[in-house]
């Protein structure tokens, strides 16, 4: 047994590679940090673990055979929360699942499981929230464009919902915080990186179609008139729909 600290390349596969290494060495309470994190604060030097796709895939298979697809979903969702210092809990979650050969999500009183579940739940909540508050705008090229700034890295989890719902139109979801895009051209879902430098004048998004401008103003009008004046409750409104989402909501502009 050894006290160890591992450094991985920042990807999910990289993290799984580091987990496999730590399990091999039977490390006690190992620490994991992404390569991007600042060095220091550690009493012992972190060891670089390179990305090993085959090792990562093997660990993933083991995990899913032990805990089922549900455990796999919990783990990936928690990872997409992009919360620092969650790696330790993710590691313990993996080890416990492999040890007990079952999905342990019901064991909510175990600290590591609770932490992983809570992160996965935050991601799930945000996906659900954006299923509602994402706004598409029709561009002059006929594509529908939606920009957002989610707290967690959710657009990969969000996209399948819109494939099922708006599958007959072409759309793109743009995570402006991470500069990630998912595009649907009517046939295929393509994830990618947004162009680092958008063309001049595109800061506010692409140019809108004529129908779009009219529809947006109608939606704003509807949204204003559907509120009951004698029940006005802006605090409740902000609690349900925090202000940080407003910049991307059509109805909150103008």
């Amino acid at each position: 047994m050894s006290l160890s600290s591992y450094r991985y390349d920042g990807s999910f596969e990289g993290l799984l590679s580091a987990f496999a290494e730590a399990r091999l060495e039977d490390a006690a309470g190992p620490a994991f940090s992404p390569a991007s994190a600042a060095e220091g604060g550690l009493l012992w030097a972190a060891r670089e673990v390179p990305l090993r796709p085959a090792t990562a895939a093997a660990l993933w298979r083991d995990l899913v055979s032990a805990g089922g697809a549900e455990a796999g979903r919990t783990l990936t969702s928690a990872w997409l929360a992009e919360e620092s210092a969650l790696e330790g809990a993710l590691y313990e979650y993996c080890c416990l699942t492999l040890e007990r050969r079952q999905c342990l999500d019901a064991w909510a009183a175990q600290p590591a499981i609770r932490a992983v579940l809570a992160a996965a739940r935050r991601v799930g909540h945000e996906v659900h929230r954006f299923q509602g508050i994402l706004r598409f705008a029709e561009t002059q090229s006929g594509w529908y464009y939606a920009a957002c700034e989610p707290d967690h890295n959710i657009i990969a989890l969000l996209a399948p919902h819109f494939v099922g719902r708006l599958g007959d139109q072409r759309w793109a979801i743009h995570d402006r915080r991470r500069d990630l895009v998912v595009c649907w051209d009517g046939q295929e879902l393509r994830p990618g990186r947004a162009p680092a430098a958008p063309p001049a004048g595109a800061a506010a998004g692409p140019a809108l179609s004529e129908a779009e401008v009219a529809t947006q103003s109608q939606w704003r009008r509807y949204h204003r008139h559907i509120a009951i004046d004698s029940r006005r409750n802006p605090r409740l409104q902000r609690r349900c729909l925090p202000r940080r989402y407003w910049p991307y909501l059509t109805e909150m502009q103008g």
Binding site: I133, H223, A227, D229, R231, L236, R239
Partner: peptide, 8 residues
């Protein structure tokens, strides 16, 4: 999808 000024 949204919340109106009365919080509904």
């Amino acid at each position: 999808h949204s919340w109106s000024a009365d919080g509904r």
